[in-house]
Design a protein around this nucleic acid. Sequence first.
RNA 1: GAACCAUUAGCUCAGUCGGCAGAGCACCUGACUCUUAAUCAGGGUGUCGAUGGUUCGAGUCCAUCAUGGCUCACCA
Length: 487
Amino acid sequence: MSESVSEQEIVRRQKLAKLKELGIEPYGEKYQVTHCATDVIGRFVALEGQPLLLAGRLMTIRTHGKASFANLQDESGQIQIYLRLDDLGEKNYMIFELLDMGDIIGVSGEAFRTRRGEVTVAVKEFRLLAKSLRPLPEKWHGLTSVDLRYRQRYLDLIVNPDVKKVFILRSRIVQEIRNYLNGLAFLEVETPVMHTLTGGASARPFITHHNALEMQLYLRIATELHLKRLIVGGMDKVYELGRIFRNEGISTRHNPEFTSVEIYQAQADYLDMMILTEELVSTVAQKVFGTMKLLFQGTEMDLTPPWPRMTMVAAIKQFAGIDFNEIITDEDARSVAVEKGLTIKPGMLRGEVMNEIFEEFVENRLFQPTFIVDYPLEVSPLAKRKTDDPSMTYRFEAFMACSEIANAFTELNDPLDQRQRFEWQMAKREAGDEEAQMLDEDFLHSLEYGMPPTGGLGIGIDRLVMILTDSPSIRDVILFPTMRPRD
RNA sequence: GAACCAUUAGCUCAGUCGGCAGAGCACCUGACUCUUAAUCAGGGUGUCGAUGGUUCGAGUCCAUCAUGGCUCACCA
């Protein structure tokens, strides 16, 4: 933010000084409001002629000599106010003339209808609650600079009313997710954000340092391993809704810190998690939007359960024309991928290649809610192997609007198998894969006491909110997205 | 991390072939007691993102850098 003061800011500071000279406190005490703007408009018939107290920000001012109209904006919306010299007296009217757009005032008066029919508050008294020293963005176009909108979200919220709607919806979506899970007797818990090692997902972490312990700490990239420890401890239905951090690029679908909800249920499997996913998402949509059919970027999406299920192998066969039932070796898999034009790292395993092909050719075809089930072992280090095919796992991901919104599996509860999977991950780490997971000895230790059969599910809240609110960028659903600081 | 686009007044944006820095809103001065993008009469308030270069002369052309957007890569 620049230190320089524009001419307009100088004028406002002069007005501030003048108000003080007149004995006006420019940053007043709280104003005891009785109504909000939309209240007065919506209940005009009942409220006409009643004393009303409102407070808000002056958004427009239209002076006509000895009378003025202005628009007052509070949290509910805007209402027109009308101030006359005859009603206010000369001194107060002069004080009003020292106000600017953006100032926050409290008004008391009565509602009436203008000749043009607009519900308006005829102000008898007003009080300055906060003087605004900077001009607001322009009133027709508002604030459109995407950069400034994110950096100065408060301005965005003041002048672009639709922005607030999205964040109200976000809040309600999160609230309904909690309601739904609490209703099923899931217990909301909080686990550490700072980890001594990273796991539960494949991602590079943020690193920080604890002075007293003189140790390196990582910001969590997932909540999974702690929640499963709770399952070991006998907390049979738990969830955590919170922020996780991944040290990766920024895009319209990625922010370095984002919100996930992870849900774990003992004596459940991935099939139960599938039902939970479709019921949760469709119920939330029904409660928040009153429908399970939503538009996303112009196309209708039907969230009504049950959602279609398709194995990854079948999906690849359908959309990429490759039949992985006939591809046995890693080498064959790699050459098929190369034929399809993919760049494949040397030494990639069959399952990893399969996942690459899926992401390249299938993901962007999954607009309607769809479950893709049975993921290869190689890309699922925490999921249980299928008994009839140990190269695959009991895992699914849910897709909506061509975006992955949920990832779930029957949790691997065999400590020996889990140790081996970690060892594979560590080998990948040593081979230079910074996203590979670290061996979590303490987690293995807990598994060795015995973890019941468990279903686990993770949902990306930001992605889900994006899709449900028809927002094209993740930054539209994060109040303060990560930005490089400006000098 | 790579390509492309953008950066000019408080905000939204024009700026032609390289020749005095522009508009609307906002702001300032004045008029106006039912306006609502109020109106009317005046007033331009600027480090043209930064630094170099080419040129008699650069907002404009070139190079580098910065920031943002977008597409891709990575990922969720």
